[in-house]
Design a protein around this nucleic acid. Structure first.
Lengths: 356, 356
DNA sequence: TTGTATGCGTTATCAT
DNA sequence: ATGATAACGCATACAA
C-alpha cells in the first residue's frame, strides 16, 4: 500500500502524462506486452501506483467485444446445493480470471426463458445453466447463439454442452447401499410421476434397477411424490407416507433437502433413525454431515463439475472447443454416515466412508 | 417470440437503417423518450424485434459512467446465512432494476482489501459489504470514494453507511429465553476472546447482560471459543466443553451453524436435547427449522436488511442520501422451537413462535 | 419531433 | 520500442 488512495476517473491519459509516455505504452505495460524498455515500464508502473489507476472494464469490454464475465443461472441460492455449487463455480472461474454473474430463476419457466434470451446475456460471454422448469419439450429454446454449458440432465441430445453426473448409477449405488445394510422396504422421496427425463426420473430408475437386482418388489406405496425438492416438501411427503401407515425400513431422498425434511418428519413422529428407518440423501451438501443423525448421501463431485463446466465454457468462448456438443459425466461417491450404518463412529468430525 | 433469433453484433445503426430513422431516434425509443411520433416508434420497435436487437451494456456503461450493477461481498456462499442473504439482496435489487455481482472473500484479509480497492469496483456502481477479517483497526481502508453500505458491526463510527441488527438486544433476548425456560448453566459457543467489537463481542455482551439481570454468575468455563463460525468449529467447541466435564443445561450458539455443530456433538455424545441441554442459535437460517430437533433461533429480519441496504446504497449512488453516514438498526425476533421448549408442537411445518 | 456530431476509455492498426 | 489515431456502441448537446 505505497500508492495514494484510489481516485475516481483516472484514465490511461493521466498515467501516460505522468509517466511521460503515450497512452499506447501504458496499455502495453498493463497488458504484459513484452517489448518495453525496463525503465519505461518502471515509470509507467510508478505512475499507475501513484494515481491508483484501474483499468475501466466497461471500455475494455466495449473495445474487445467480450465482458470477462460468465453467467451462472440456478434455481435459488437458498437451496444449499446451489449455494455450494455457486461457491465452487466462482472459485473455478476465478482460477481462470473470469467473473461470475449469478442469476436466480426460482425454477420459474418464464425466468428460465429470460435467462436464455434476456438482456443480461449481453453482459456475459457465456452461460452455465442449471434448468429446472424447462425440459426436453423446450429444446428449441436452448438453441442459442452464445456459448452455454448445461448442468443436470433435463435436456438430452440437446443443442448445448452438458456436464452431469451419472444419476442412474449413483442412485443405484445409494439404493444398493441400503439393501446391503439389510433394508428391504425402501421408500423413495421426491418422485415425479410421469417424468421420463430429469434428475427425478433418472434417480428413480437407478432405484428401480437396484431393487430389481436384489429381487425386491417395486411397491408404488413407497414412492413419495415431491415436486420441488425442498426440506418442506420432503417432510410433507414423509408425513403422508407415515400417515398412510406404509410399512418401510429405509428412505432414499432424491436430494439431501428432501432427506433432511424426511429426517425431520421421522423425528417428529418419534421414529428412530437408523434403528427403525435408515435414511440416505443425494448431493452431500454440508448439512448432511451435520444432521442428527449425520446423513448418508451421494457426493456428486461438485468441485469437479464446477471446474469442468467453467473450462468447457471458456473453451467454447475462445472457440477452442470441438464443433459438436460435448457431454461430460463426472464421478460420484456414496458417503456412509450414521443415518444408514448406525453409530459406528462417534467424533466431532463426521465420519465419511467412501463406499462406491 | 415473434421475432427472429437473436443475432450477435446487431447495433443501433442496423436498427436505424431498417426503420429508416436515425440512431438517435432508436435511442429515444429504447430509453422511453416521450416525444416520438407513434408511427415512428412502431417502425423502430418492429425493426428491433425483427433483428433481435439488444442494447450493448458495455457501451452504455462506458458512455454513462454507471454500470447498473452493485457488488455484494460476503465471506462465502457455502455458509447458509450468506447464501440466504445473497438471495434476498438479489431479489431486493431486482425490484429496483439493478443487477448484483457477488464476490466471495473467504474471510481473508487480503481479499477483503481487494474488494475495497480492486479492479472490480469499476464494474459496479456501489458495494454492499459484510466484512469479517477487517475490523476497526482497518478503518482507514474503508474510506473509499464509491458508495458503500456495510453489513454487520465490525466497523463503528465508520466512514460508511451501515445496516445492522441490534446484536446486544437480540442476544440478550435469546439468553433470556433460555433463562425463562428454566436454564441456569448456559454455555456460549462462538466466543472471540479479547474482541470488543464485532458480532461475537456484541452478542456475548447481550448474553452477559441477560445473566446479570437474572442474577446468574458468568462462568468462564461456559465460554466456548470458535474463531470461524462454522458447523465444524461449533461441534469442536462443544466437544471440548463436554470433554472438560463442564456442567451445563443450555447452549447459546452465536450463529446457527455453531448451534447446529453443537447439536451434532451433543447427539454424538448421546446428550438429549432439549431434555438435558437446551440449544438456541442465531440467524434463523432455513436449516434451523429442519434440524433434529428443530432449532430455536433469533431471526434477524433478513429481507428487511437486504432491502434496506439496497435502497440505501442506491440512494447513495443517486446522490439522494443524506450527507452524513446513515446507521440503520433492523428488527429481530426470537423463534422458539423444540430445541428449547420441547416437543410442544409436532407437525411437518416446524413450529414458529414469536417470543420477542 | 428528429438528425448530426462528439466523446466515454480502451485496444489495435499502422507508422516510425 | 513507442506514438498517433481510428474504431467499439451508445447517449447526449446542439441543430434543424
Amino acid at each position: 500500500m505505497t500508492g495514494k488512495r484510489r481516485q475516481a476517473g483516472v484514465t490511461m491519459q493521466d498515467v501516460a502524462a505522468i509517466a511521460g509516455v503515450s497512452i499506447k505504452t501504458v496499455s502495453n505495460v498493463i497488458n504484459g506486452y513484452p517489448y518495453i524498455r525496463p525503465g519505461t515500464k518502471e515509470r509507467v508502473e510508478a505512475a499507475i501506483e501513484q494515481l491508483g489507476y484501474r483499468v475501466n472494464l466497461s471500455a475494455r469490454n466495449l473495445r474487445q467485444g467480450r465482458t470477462g464475465m460468465i453467467g451462472l443461472a440456478v434455481p435459488e441460492l437458498s437451496l444449499p446445493y446451489f449455494a455450494e455449487l455457486a461457491d465452487s463455480v466462482i472459485q473455478a472461474a476465478e482460477r481462470r480470471g473470469v467473473i461470475v454473474l449469478i442469476e436466480q430463476t426460482n425454477a420459474s419457466r418464464e425466468r428460465e426463458l429470460e435467462v436464455l434470451h434476456g438482456q443480461r446475456r449481453h453482459l456475459t460471454d457465456g452461460l452455465i445453466f442449471s434448468p429446472l422448469a424447462l425440459g426436453t419439450e423446450d429444446r428449441a429454446s436452448f438453441a442459442v447463439d452464445f456459448p452455454m454449458v448445461l448442468l443436470g440432465e433435463r435436456i438430452f441430445g440437446g443443442p448445448a454442452d452438458h456436464v452431469t453426473m451419472s444419476n442412474v448409477e449413483a442412485a443405484r449405488a445409494a439404493t444398493r447401499h441400503l439393501i446391503e445394510t439389510g433394508r428391504r422396504r425402501i421408500a423413495l422421496i421426491g418422485s415425479h410421476a410421469g417424468e421420463t427425463v430429469g434428475s427425478a426420473a433418472l434417480r428413480q430408475r437407478g432405484y428401480e434397477q437396484a431393487l430389481a437386482e436384489a429381487g425386491l418388489p417395486l411397491d408404488p406405496a413407497l414412492l413419495g411424490e415431491a415436486g420441488l425438492w425442498h426440506r418442506s416438501t420432503g417432510a410433507e411427503a414423509m408425513e403422508r407416507m407415515l400417515d398412510a401407515g406404509t410399512d418401510l425400513d429405509a428412505v432414499f431422498g432424491l436430494n439431501d433437502a428432501l432427506a433432511i425434511g424426511a429426517l425431520h418428519a421421522l423425528h417428529a413422529r418419534g421414529v428412530a433413525v437408523p434403528e427403525e428407518v435408515a435414511v440416505i440423501g443425494f448431493d452431500d451438501i454440508e448439512d448432511a454431515a451435520y444432521a442428527s443423525p449425520p446423513l448418508s448421501s451421494v457426493a456428486p463431485g461438485r468441485e469437479q463439475i464446477a471446474q469442468t463446466a467453467v473450462d468447457l465454457l471458456l473453451a467454447r468462448v475462445a472457440g477452442t472447443a470441438p464443433a459438436e456438443h460435448v457431454e461430460v459425466i463426472t464421478d460420484f461417491e456414496v458417503v456412509a454416515r450414521e443415518s444408514t450404518v448406525g453409530a459406528a463412529v462417534r467424533s466431532a468430525a463426521p465420519a465419511r466412508t467412501g463406499v462406491a
